[in-house]
Design a protein around this nucleic acid. Structure first.
Lengths: 333, 333
DNA sequence: GAGTCTATGTTAAGCGTTTGCGGATTGCAA
DNA sequence: TTGCAATCCGCAAACGCTTAACATAGACTC
């Protein structure tokens, strides 16, 4: 698409040079109020909007940011994406989104850069540290979510997974549960590690013993949760509460209990993590460690936006505290 | 972000002019294989990638398309978005996404255009025909999903809602149900109208009588479905099957039945529409009219891509046939 | 050895903006 | 009147790339 009406058209019609038009719309000095007004009226009339690409070539500001998620169909992401976009739009920014699930993450990032994005928000989990670091060396404002990273160009935003897991166990223990199992995942991600750490720490804090048999691993999916819960309940029939790595596994666990003829929460209490929409939609509704995903997205954008305006400002780490949402799936022991 | 390495850098290093480099990477003629090879090696080495914005200024091809959805957190959309992006990426395209839920749709479209998108896929439901038409006059390749529109620049892609609703009723009638209610919505959208039409037609085809009391309206949400189902079952305790406008309402209906002590599907059969992820995740799993959302996204991109390559090709209407997915929530009367 | 091609590169213009600098106009004091 | 600052605006270059048109060399014909 070639632009319909350009700055030259406006200039011609106004009988001034395009530079003057540029000054009028950008509110730069060196222009008389009268001319300015006259031009602005014309701009409205003709429906002129500056071509952002041309603008970007001069100013190095494309007004686009990149947003990279593993897979937008994963229910964890839409809300974050929405938040980023809401915040972006409020600040005159547009969002270039990519899924990385079946591509090289670094490739995707590099491709985004060729489009001239001013900043980047990314969930980048598969790419190794070195590649990410190389990339960050070359690129400007960049924020990684849920990955630890020490690099002067990279700001991180992380959910405090450990604290969240602690809270979950505390919640269950507070309800009087003494034997609390965990469904974990086989993926060696940071959140996985932290949540398991938190689980163990939580047990300790509550004066309960951790035992290997209480920890079962499977895919972080509904099916995985179902399978893992069955395995756990076979191993340890004395378990009265389950902490699931995420909500999908939590829902799977509820399903498993139903299959085994156990009532939730009467016989078994279950709590998930992330608090995705699904959690509140099933019955019994799933208690969960709530992560404010909308807030997360907004914060991410805000930070990137600041970095774009103030490229010299220091990189840092942003933490997000999760909290417990009790629903129907957890109750007194 | 200013580009790290430009075509000039490569040219200088190769000892040729930048135009020659351009030829090498774009595989245009008028260059000796030896020089070409030599340059390509350098390009790799230096990690040079053409700046798409600069490219776009000349070629009028930004390799970006716009994708506009009402709200990405609505579970109907992520899969479509994902499909569009997969297809886009395969073809060297990137996707600029916007939610319109709290902005003027036309504003969003216009803004996207300033970024130089080559094509546009949009769910645009609130904007009136005239505004859309005005916009289409000025813009190029454009595809609207689930809205009827006659404009020479606009291609439409629609789910056959009426046929889907017919199928749903046929399904229920086929299971022996004689009194089939519908939970509809108060939104006056095209899908709403069509689904109600299909419902009535389906009843007719099955030799069943439609009655106003069988049709209840509420918000197209879980809560709305719950409320509407209760109302319906109060009005017509003889209902044995319910067709819900969408899956969320269907899930709400299941909840209502549970609240009322009715078993699904033993006492009441329920079927939804759209087949969102949730449908298969709840228990009992919700039967639904399946819309192949992934296919929808791919088709949309394909069509837009063709229109971009072949701007003169004719606009048309693409239809998608839904089909029934029977799960646990529907059974014999 | 002059004339003609062909193969390869280069020059320069242009895409739609912004911006540093210099030119023109005005107003006012000397 | 003249001189000078202040005010307003235009010229031209620049951003990084593509592409039409042109230049140069070598290879070929006769």
């Amino acid at each position: 698409m070639r632009q319909k009406v350009t700055i030259d058209d406006v200039a011609r019609k106004a009988g001034v040079s395009k530079q003057t038009v540029s000054r009028a719309i950008n509110d730069k000095g060196d222009i008389s109020p009268i001319t300015r007004e006259r031009i602005l009226v014309l701009v409205k009339e003709m429906g002129y909007r500056p071509n952002r690409m041309a603008q970007a070539m001069n100013t190095s500001r494309s007004h686009m940011i990149g947003l990279v998620v593993p897979d937008i169909t994963n229910p964890f992401f839409p809300e974050i994406v929405r938040a980023v976009q809401d915040a972006a739009m409020e600040n005159g920014y547009t969002t270039l989104i990519c899924n990385t699930v079946n591509s090289s993450e670094i490739e995707v990032l590099n491709d985004l850069v060729t489009h001239g994005i001013d900043g980047l928000i990314t969930f980048t989990h598969r790419a190794d540290d070195e590649s990410v670091s190389d990339f960050a060396d070359r690129f400007g404002p960049m924020l990684i979510i849920n990955r630890e990273f020490a690099h002067q160009n990279i700001t991180t935003l992380m959910v405090d997974n450990k604290a969240g897991a602690c809270l979950a166990v505390e919640h269950l223990a507070g309800l009087g549960h003494k034997t609390i199992g965990m469904l974990s995942t086989d993926l060696a991600t940071l959140s996985q590690t932290r949540r398991v750490q938190g689980y163990k720490e939580g047990l300790g804090d509550a004066g309960l013993q951790f035992d290997e048999s209480l920890l079962v691993q499977a895919d972080p999916t509904l099916a995985g949760g179902l399978e893992a819960a069955k395995e756990l309940l076979k191993r340890r029939p004395d378990v009265t509460a389950i902490f699931a790595y995420n909500d999908l596994m939590g829902v799977g666990a509820i399903r498993a209990c139903k299959d085994l003829g156990l009532k939730v929460p009467e016989d078994i209490s279950i709590i998930g993590f992330d608090d995705i929409q699904l959690a509140s939609m099933i019955s019994p509704a799933l208690s969960s460690v709530h992560v404010d995903k909308y807030e997360m997205g907004r914060k991410a954008f805000e930070r990137i936006y600041n970095l774009i305006q103030e490229p010299t400002s220091t990189r840092d780490m942003i933490g997000m505290k999760p909290k417990i949402i009790q629903r129907e799936s957890s109750g007194p022991a």
